[in-house]
């Protein structure tokens, strides 16, 4: 974490910040792709739980983006803002962006899970 704090102050963008920004969309893409592809499989085998597992795993992946953002946010100096010219300002902007993104894509994953609670895969 000390290393992360150092890079945030320097204004570099460590992998954690990039994960915070793009973990959510990645998780959502996995959820949509795997669910769509495996629906026929769950119907034919009767393993309906697979679709729910995909939802849970992908929602957790999206939330790790939020966790990464929160961890990074704690290390941004207090004087940072999202419109300044300093690298830490840009980092602050990236982290806010990433946290919003992670929450939004978690909601999208849950929204796409609702039909699984109601419909049968073989319908």
């Amino acid at each position: 974490m000390a290393e992360l704090e150092h890079t945030v102050r320097k204004g570099e963008a460590p992998a954690l910040i990039w994960w915070c920004m793009f973990g959510g969309p990645f998780a959502w893409a996995c959820d949509l792709g795997f669910s769509y592809v495996l629906e026929q499989h769950t119907c034919s085998t009767g393993h309906h739980y697979v679709l729910h597992v995909i939802t849970v795993v992908c929602a957790i992946i999206a939330l790790t983006g939020l966790a990464a953002g929160m961890a990074a946010y704690k290390r941004v100096p207090e004087e940072a803002n999202d419109h300044g010219v300093r690298p830490m300002d840009r980092t602050h902007f990236q982290i806010l962006f990433g946290m919003v993104f992670s929450i939004a894509f978690t909601i999208v994953i849950i929204a796409e899970a609702v039909p699984r609670w109601i419909l049968h895969p073989c319908q």
């Binding site: 949509l32 929204a111 796409e112 039909p115 049968h120 073989c122």
Partner: peptide, 28 residues
């Protein structure tokens, strides 16, 4: 930009794809 790539099947609702598959794309 991201979500735009996850809704294409809504143009194909009338092709007979399974109901649950369609619902994923309805949600998106």
């Amino acid at each position: 930009g991201f979500l735009g790539f996850g809704v294409w099947v809504h143009h194909m609702f009338a092709t007979g794809i399974p109901q649950m598959s369609a619902s994923f794309f309805t949600a998106a």
